[in-house]
């Protein structure tokens, strides 16, 4: 099959999923409306009423990892094409990527020594 067909299929899958979900919602709809009652739309908090919205400036304690993740994730984009041609190119590929990864890895080690690898 041509690659284009594959992507059409992919699109088709997405549409099918959406269609199934829509059908599900329709069936649910046929079973009646939700009765509006006080308290029901408030997120459960083990028995306590929390009428106030919960959104806030949330402290994400793992931001150190998140930054590191960005650096590594960028690098991984190069890895896939490299991996495909790896055997073809041979030892040169190993060295090329080895140096690249080593630099990145040193970054990880540095973060580690700076106590960056922990919950802040």
């Amino acid at each position: 099959m041509a690659p284009l067909t594959q992507y059409l299929l992919l699109l088709g899958m997405g549409i099918t999923t959406a269609g199934l979900v829509w059908m599900l919602y329709l069936i649910k709809q046929s079973l009646g409306q939700t009765l509006d009652e006080p308290g029901k739309d408030i997120p459960a908090e083990s028995g306590n009423l929390a009428p106030k919205p919960a959104w806030l400036r949330y402290h994400v304690h793992y931001y150190g990892y998140a930054l590191l993740f960005l650096a590594f994730d960028m690098e991984m984009a190069y890895m896939y094409p490299w991996a495909v041609v790896y055997r073809e190119v041979g030892i040169l590929a190993l060295l090329d990527m080895g140096v690249f990864l080593m630099i990145l890895f040193l970054g990880l080690i540095y973060t580690w020594t700076q106590l960056g690898l922990k919950r802040q």
Binding site: P43, Y65, F69, M76
Partner: peptide, 28 residues
């Protein structure tokens, strides 16, 4: 918009940050 769910959501991202690097690398 509830506290329990919000904490759960942010934990999900923590989990993503934790596992995704090893996953990508072993896939490679």
């Amino acid at each position: 918009n509830g506290v329990y769910a919000m904490i759960g959501g942010w934990r999900a991202i923590a989990q993503l940050i934790a596992y995704s690097m090893p996953v990508v690398m072993v896939l490679t």
